[in-house]
Design a protein around this nucleic acid. Structure first.
Ligand code: MN
Ligand code: MN
Ligand code: ZN
Ligand code: ZN
Lengths: 135, 135
DNA sequence: ATGATGCTTAGACGAAGTCTAACGCCGCCC
DNA sequence: GGGCGGCGTTAGACTTCGTCTAAGCATCAT
């Protein structure tokens, strides 16, 4: 994702541009990937950036709310942010901790249950847990 | 679930019986429900029990490993334990934090993707996120 | 008895994320 | 230009959830 794309996306989602937000976006949205806040901070530090921890967390929360990144719930000990915004699912390898995308078309959802009374849908999260085959 | 059922389940899963494990099981496995460690500790304290925090966490980890309870990954800030061991899925109401079971039969999974090379399946977690309808 | 093993415990510790209060930056008004 | 308000950023304190440590206990085998 180019700098131009990022600026367009910010505009589209009503997110004001700041140097720090651009730095975080440049790392996370560079390519399809799944990163924790800590990994993003490490990469920022590695490239000499001084964006504070508080700002990284604020920014990731903002990106989540505005649909600039997706939060993936697989591991209760840390939040993972996903640069792929479109509809898709995940494999989670419990041995390696690795997350892998499943394109929406590769997984069909048959019958779906009625929603609870008085609620409306937000989305469907599917995680297929796998482990390494030992033989 | 009766005390007898719990003892049978422990035996079946190779879990040694201790008074503390029985107390935790009595609370969690009483009925179909979803509880955090903290809620379990509160209920133990409320009924005058003195089981330590460390033991509650150790016990819940053990229950998870041995399939005596299920860990539901829905909220990255705390672990939720599910007394329903069978195959089923969940609604998660983001407004209330409420988790609601979806029986396996109510949700059909059509085509499933090929697993990543060298891995074998552990299970499929599905969470349908919903919010309260406001109007 | 003695020792080994495994469970429980209080409280220290660690990791992830949030909050606070000060500070900087920018646009607006005069 | 100077002052003001609003928002974003910052360091570091703080909170929360969970794990670890080291001591104490129980049970079992010899
Ligand atoms: Mn790191
Ligand atoms: Mn509580
Ligand atoms: Zn993804
Ligand atoms: Zn359930």
């Amino acid at each position: 994702m180019t700098r131009e794309d990022i600026l367009d996306l910010f505009a589209e989602r009503g997110v004001k541009v700041t140097p720090q937000r651009l730095e975080v976006a440049a790392i996370l949205l560079e390519k399809p990937q799944h990163l924790s806040a800590d990994q993003i901070i490490d990469r920022l530090r590695g490239s000499g950036s001084r964006v504070s921890k508080a700002t990284v967390y604020n920014t990731l929360n903002l990106f989540g709310e505005r649909g600039i990144a997706r939060e993936v719930k697989v591991d209760p000990i840390r939040r993972i942010y996903d640069s792929t915004r479109g509809h898709h699912y995940h494999f989670f390898n419990v041995d390696t901790g690795e997350l892998q995308d499943i394109p929406a078309d590769d997984l069909e959802l048959g019958r779906q249950p009625d929603l609870p009374e008085g609620t409306e849908p937000l989305g469907v999260d599917i995680v297929i847990r796998v482990k390494n085959r030992r033989n």
